[in-house]
Design a protein around this nucleic acid. Structure first.
Lengths: 192, 192
DNA sequence: AGGCTCATGTAAATAGTTACATGATTTT
DNA sequence: AAAATCATGTAACTATTTACATGAGCCT
């Protein structure tokens, strides 16, 4: 149940409409959470229903019209409680290493270019994050809030660094045996 | 749609029953994908329905009885096709950085011990993965399939390294007072 | 007015989680 | 044979994705 809390956080940082939130999820918040606009509108509806946020009356909310939300005290309290909640880390979920492992069984086929592509995408994202760091915190963070935001950004940087490191090695290693033979139908034991 | 393909991969590596697969998902496959046994049984049913796998007749499959599956040619073909599919990397989803960011808005509160706890959990997992590497590939990979499996394991290692690196810095930074009435807990830290 | 884009929204399908039920096997 | 455990399974719920629909404002 993280999406509603991500929205509360974003709205506390700055009251926004659904489409603004969608854009912000593609940027700062998006280092560790993504959401489509449909998810966001639905969740905003629920939060409003629950009395945690409310629509500002300023731009006369009707359909097709911008509708700006702000967080109510109840929403802030809920977020406060969520911050203190304990929750074990979840296993990350990414199909690419899975596909690599599948390739180990049915043959590498055309996977190498895909690995290269992903390596480059992660590299680009890493570069982008570093650019954010340079641009948005030139002299270091200025407030407590900025300090935390920078910390989260660095989390994104560390994760992307991990991906680039791994994919670089994987591409190297698989380039060694171009074409790659296939293991055929022989099934041997599982690892670990 | 990765779960069915993860199952096909696992079954090609070694025909198994649902509960065995569940255990294997907590181990080797689990570096990048997790699944509960309910998900797995349901998906096995679908795969059998679709004619991609079949239950072996050996242990007479009835309820409460072990039911072992093997992959049919159609399943192998489907997996083959999946390996060559292109798919953009998805944003990782983790609540912890989100909670940190929320803490930047509503106050850090009791989050520091939680960060320490996560750091230690990731450290433990990292150590476990490294142990797998030492134990299962002492002289390097012996077959093409092992080479790929080792590569995937190293992916897990790189990701966990990223987490440990980030959490270590985060704990350090937040222990250095400033901001919240938060007494610094145990904050020793060193990445590998 | 007609076409375009933006912001909001509905509907349906897929994926994942949580709680619980039941038959078989092993242990005491 | 009762209890504990293992393996399979059902049901209900929550979360996420994909496809499509509609009103408002803008531009020419």
């Amino acid at each position: 149940m993280s999406l509603p809390h991500a929205l509360l956080t974003a709205l506390l940082e700055k009251p926004s409409s659904g489409s603004e939130l969608t854009r912000r999820f593609d940027r700062s918040i998006g280092y560790f959470w993504s959401a489509t606009h449909q998810q966001i509108y639905r969740e905003l509806g629920k939060l409003e229903q629950a009395g945690l946020i409310r629509a500002l009356p300023s731009p006369v909310p009707t359909r097709g019209q911008r509708k700006e939300y702000e967080v109510l005290p109840e929403g802030r309290a809920e977020l406060r409680a969520w911050v203190d909640r304990r929750e074990d880390p979840r296993v990350s979920r990414d199909p690419l290493p899975l596909r690599l492992r599948a390739a180990g069984v049915v043959g590498v086929g055309d996977l190498l270019p895909e690995l290269v592509r992903h390596r480059d995408l992660h590299r680009a994202r890493l570069e982008e994050y570093r650019e954010f760091e340079r641009r948005d915190y030139p002299g270091g963070p200025r407030t407590e809030q900025e300090r935390v935001q920078l910390l989260v950004l660095r989390g994104g940087i560390d994760m992307e660094t991990g991906w680039v490191s791994w994919l670089t090695r994987a591409v190297e290693e698989l380039s060694g045996t171009a074409g790659a033979p296939e293991a055929g139908g022989s099934a041997d034991g599982d690892v670990s």
